[in-house]
């Protein structure tokens, strides 16, 4: 079976681990348990009739205590950038990490998640800014690990883009 490595990149506590848990185990917890280092999970998906084993790399968020190691990205098919809709500075962080990843590995299929969509009343993004982020290669999705909104789509879109890139 085809293996595809997909990394989650973003600031601390934006919901990367929660998104992976939702995607792999279908559950959500309010409790915050910080990720140290890397956490590897697997899930099989079917993309256009083909079975693909997704290897999901949940990386520790970058903040004043930890720096993201770019070498962890080696060999990834693509990545998912995660920002917390209630904290605008996490979007800057996500875009910065994306740039660093592109510099290190070249462009790869990616998706940008504005997470915690269930808390949209606390969001601090203008629709205008969100509209500007949209691009053909990199879909922007409003996701929620809590409700599951856009979680499947996010992984599927990166996996499919990565697959067609290889063909």
């Amino acid at each position: 079976m085809i293996l595809q490595k997909i990394c989650l990149l973003g600031a601390t506590a934006v919901g990367k681990t929660s998104l992976v848990r939702r995607f792999v185990q279908g559950i959500f917890s309010d409790r915050y348990l910080t990720t140290v280092g890397v956490r590897i999970d697997k899930r099989e998906v079917e993309i256009e009739g083909e079975r693909i084993q997704l290897v999901v790399w949940d990386l520790s968020g970058e903040d004043e205590f930890a720096q993201l190691q770019m070498r962890y990205l080696r060999g990834s098919a693509g990545w998912i950038l995660v920002a917390d809709g209630t904290r605008p500075e996490t979007l800057d962080k996500a875009l910065e990490l994306h740039q660093r990843a592109v510099d290190a590995l070249g462009d790869r299929p990616a998706a940008l998640l504005l997470n915690k969509a269930d808390l949209v009343d606390q969001w601090r993004f203008s629709d205008e800014r969100i509209a500007k982020l949209q691009s053909a290669e990199r879909p922007v999705l409003r996701s929620s690990a809590k409700t599951g909104a856009s979680v499947e789509e996010a992984f599927a879109s990166v996996a499919a883009a990565a697959r067609s890139r290889l063909r």
Binding site: T12, Y32, T34, F65
Partner: peptide, 20 residues
Amino acid sequence: EFQQLQQSLQTAREAALHAQ
């Protein structure tokens, strides 16, 4: 050892988030 490290990182991060 690792759990202790995780615990203190957790504390530090929670404090930072709160302050933010």
